[in-house]
Computed example of a mutant assay.
Amino acid sequence: MERSAYYRNRVLPWLLLAPQLILVLVFFYWPTSQALYWAFTLEQPWGGGNSWVGLQNFISIFGDKSYWSTVLRSGLYAAVTTGISMSIALVLASFVDRSLKGTKFFQSVYVWPYAIAAPAAGVAFRFIFAPESGLIGALNTIWPGLWNPAINGGQALLMVMVCHAWLGIGYNFIFFLAALQMIPRSISEAGAMDGARPVRRLFDLQLPLIAPTVFFLMIMNLISSFTDSFGLIDVMTEGGPFGQTEVMVYKIYFDGFKTLDYSGAAAQSIVLMLIVIALTFVQFKWVERRVHYN
């Protein structure tokens, strides 16, 4: 029989919930309502309020070829950063998931990148990948012009993606290590006795058993790549060169606060929100059927 908690004072539960409700209303529902308002209206040229324009803002951004380039770039950014970060984290977790000397030290070291703020990491990686110094500078001395993200958009985008993937390794590593340690040792030992090498055991035994964790991390990494890349891009490239590192979240900022196109930026934010919602819905409804939890 389940026990339920009852409050004699009917006001007390609402007082306990009030701080969280206020935070949700102020930092989620209120900004969302304002974004919806601006997305369907247009500010008058000389002030004086907004006029209703319906879907005109959405038609305008959908008819812009540069916007679709940004959408495709965001998809590429999310796929690459998610793949790199999760793959490296899984390899590291499988290495330290052993009763060997020194594994405890590496278990703590691999988590450290997650504690670093994105702008700080962006500044560090900007210096690491600077074409004038370090390893890259030495390569440019041998092959002049081999690497210069200041003028090469592909290299600049790669630099940002590597930094974003590196930041997510610690987060993914924690979950992968916890999932691997939940697998009974007898299963891996049985596979080893049958002659399966570590890589074979990882793909044939361990990965199917931690599929729920992989599924969860894939969703979280994709959403993070779509929504949390602003700090890195603003510090490392500011969307350049020539807009080649401009993803959806940064374009919203640029159009809204640089070009002062509030309505267009609001419409873009609604599109980004719908993409994230659709991505999560598709993942849970389609991928979940192929994930075994037992």
Rank of each mutant, 00 (worst) to 15 (best):
G154F: 09
N148K: 08
G168A: 10
L167C: 05
L139K: 04
P144Q: 14
G145E: 14
G145N: 13
W166R: 03
I142A: 07
L135M: 10
A165V: 15
F127R: 12
I169P: 01
G170M: 03
V160R: 13
G168H: 11
N140R: 09
G137T: 00
M161C: 10
P131I: 14
I142V: 15
A138E: 02
V160M: 10
G153I: 12
L158M: 11
F129L: 14
A165C: 14
A138I: 14
L139D: 09
A156G: 06
I151V: 10
A124D: 00
H164D: 05
R126N: 14
G153T: 12
T141P: 06
A121M: 02
A156M: 02
A130C: 04
I142R: 09
P131A: 13
L139R: 07
A130K: 08
H164W: 06
E132C: 00
I136S: 05
W143A: 09
V162Q: 02
A121S: 07
G134R: 00
R126T: 13
L139C: 05
A165K: 14
I169Q: 05
G134K: 08
W166E: 01
A150P: 07
A156Q: 03
A124L: 06
W166M: 09
F125I: 06
M161P: 06
G137D: 04
F125Y: 12
A130Q: 10
L158R: 00
G168L: 00
T141Y: 01
Q155R: 10
G134E: 07
I169S: 12
A130N: 15
N148E: 01
A124R: 07
G137E: 01
A121H: 11
F129D: 07
A165R: 04
N152H: 08
L158E: 00
H164G: 00
F127P: 00
N140A: 04
P144H: 12
P131V: 06
A165S: 13
C163K: 09
V160F: 08
W166G: 03
L146M: 15
V160T: 11
G153N: 15
L157D: 09
A124K: 04
M161E: 00
V162S: 08
L139N: 01
N140V: 13
G134Y: 06
L139V: 15
L146I: 15
V123Y: 07
H164S: 05
